[in-house]
Computed example of a mutant assay.
Amino acid sequence: MKDFSKELTFKTSRSSGAGGQNVNKVETSVTVLWKVSDSGFFNDEQKDRIHHKLNNRINAEGFLFLTVSETRTQLMNKTRAIEKILELVNQALIIPKKRLATKPSKSQKQKRLDTKKKLSDKKENRKFRY
């Protein structure tokens, strides 16, 4: 897991929604911004993979952004935002294994045919005969 938290920038804002005495005066919501193309931690291939996987979270200027307002303190929200963005980017970098095509075995084919035959016989026995 790569830690590129030194490249992150933060913005704070007032949290939305209902609140008490602090909601209108304390900026507890944290937005973390990261310029993907300017990163020194990743090579071009990894940057392309991040752009491709997270393109819905990257704005027109090339910033990956994430807003967190889960807790009541700015420090906890900042910590949580760092954790989330690191996890998000590291998940995007995972290359899935290619699926190997396999054929069903003879026993699986025979079992399927036997099941079909049993069902067919059961339905045939339901018919009313004169």
Rank of each mutant, 00 (worst) to 15 (best):
K2C: 04
D3H: 04
D3T: 05
T9I: 01
K11T: 14
T12S: 12
T12K: 11
G17N: 05
G20H: 12
V23L: 12
V23P: 03
K25L: 07
S29L: 06
T31D: 03
W34E: 10
K35C: 08
V36R: 02
S37C: 09
S37F: 08
G40R: 07
N43E: 12
E45F: 13
Q46D: 11
Q46A: 04
D48W: 01
R49Q: 15
H52K: 10
L54P: 10
N55G: 09
N55Q: 13
N56R: 15
R57P: 01
I58V: 09
N59T: 05
N59H: 11
A60M: 09
E61G: 05
E61V: 08
G62N: 07
G62W: 09
L64Q: 07
F65E: 14
V68H: 02
S69K: 13
E70D: 13
T71V: 03
T71I: 04
L75E: 14
L75K: 15
L75D: 15
L88M: 15
V89S: 08
V89L: 06
N90V: 09
N90Q: 14
L93W: 06
L100F: 08
T102I: 03
K103A: 08
P104D: 06
S107A: 07
Q108N: 11
T115E: 02
T115A: 07
T115H: 07
K118A: 15
L119K: 13
L119S: 11
K122W: 00
K122M: 03
E124Y: 00
R126W: 06
